[in-house]
């Protein structure tokens, strides 16, 4: 099917790949249907484009790339009503890019959890976690060689 988007014009998408957020997102209660769009091959960042509001899209990233232990912070009771048990959720974190400061940060307190079979999701708020709403990607887990090569 075709959808309208302000960033990419009219695009063709596979309706079967759509993701539904029955409760919308925090602050966007009516934004229910989304589709994931690749921006560039090999890039960890994707677009989460609203199918109903052409102007609404988010840059998203797999939070496990930032912290491989992140799934431990997501309680299964918070999302196991979205589909059959026994599967790993698809996790996405919303990315904020600050044009003025040039910072790229990831919201690790409000992840999107999606059931891979039903493709239903919701935005959780991890109230008691020690994660940051604005986790700077420059602070990601890095190998020692990378750290050494970056220091001057």
């Amino acid at each position: 099917m075709q959808i309208e988007t302000t960033r990419f014009g009219t695009i063709e998408i596979d309706e079967g790949k759509s993701i539904e957020f029955p409760e919308g997102l925090v602050g966007f209660p009516d934004a229910r249907r989304f589709v994931l769009l690749e921006h560039a091959p090999q890039s960890p960042f994707h677009w989460l484009q609203s199918m109903d509001e052409p102007d609404l899209a988010f840059v998203v990233v797999d939070p496990l790339l930032i912290d491989p232990q992140y799934a431990d912070a997501v309680p299964v009771e918070a999302w196991n009503d979205l589909g059959p048990a026994g599967v790993e959720p698809l996790l996405l974190a919303l990315v904020t890019i600050d044009r003025h400061e040039g910072r790229v940060t990831v919201n690790l307190v409000g992840p999107l959890v999606i059931h891979p079979e039903t493709r239903k999701g919701r935005q959780l708020v991890l109230d008691e976690s020690s994660y940051s709403i604005q986790h700077d990607i420059m602070c990601s887990t890095k190998s020692p060689t990378q750290v050494l090569s970056r220091s001057s």
Binding site: L56, A57, F58, V95, I97, N107, Q123, Q134
Partner: peptide, 18 residues
């Protein structure tokens, strides 16, 4: 508030993140 800030991302912002 952070969701609103994230929703303002444009193609240029995506390129910056990449």
């Amino acid at each position: 508030e952070e969701n609103r800030r994230a929703a303002a991302s444009d193609v240029e912002d995506m390129e910056r993140a990449i």
